[in-house]
Amino acid sequence: MGHTVTVTVNGTSYSREIEPTLLLVEFLRETLALTGTHVGCDTSQCGACTVLVDGRATKACTMLAVQADGATVVTVEGLAKNGDLHPIQRAFAKEHGLQCGFCTPGLMITAVDFLERNASPSDAEIRHAIEGNLCRCTGYHNIVNAIRTASAEMRQAASGEAKIAAEVQP
C-alpha cells in the first residue's frame, strides 16, 4: 500500500490507495467495479482489456495502475454520452458484430481510436487495425462491416457539423 493514484475514468476523477503491482485492468475491474473491460489472456495477445488511455487504445493488462496516475481513461462504460450510444456501439449491434460479447468492448475501443486517426479506412486497414483484438465467435466479417459502417456514420456526422458550423458563420 501507500501508492495513491488519481485517474479520470469516464469523466470522473478517482483517487485510490493501491498496491504498486496492481494492473490497470484490475484497478478498473476490481477497485472501481467497472467490469465491462474484460480479461481474456495473460500474455497481451487477445485485446479484450483494451481501454483508451489519454486517447490511445491500450491493453490495460500491460500497464500498471500507478502508471496511469494523472491519466484520462475511457472504458466501454464511457462510450455512450448522455444516454446516446457512440456510433461504434450502434454499428456493432446493427451489423451483428458481436455474438458472446466478451471481446466486444476491447474491439470497440480499438476501433474508436483507429477511426480517430483514419476516418475513411479500407477493409484491409480495418483488419490491420484490429489484428491485436481476437474474436472467436464472429470470424471478423461483421466486425469489419461494423467498423466500416461506423466510419461512414461518423464522417457524415462530421460533415454535418462542418456544414452547420459553416452556416452559422457570419
Binding site: L34, T35, G36, H38, V76, A80, L85, Q89, G101, T104
Partner: peptide, 10 residues
C-alpha cells in the same frame, strides 16, 4: 453487451 452492462462470471 455493447455498453459493458453484461455480467460474466468473473
Amino acid at each position: 453487451l455493447i455498453t459493458g452492462e453484461g455480467t460474466f462470471t468473473d
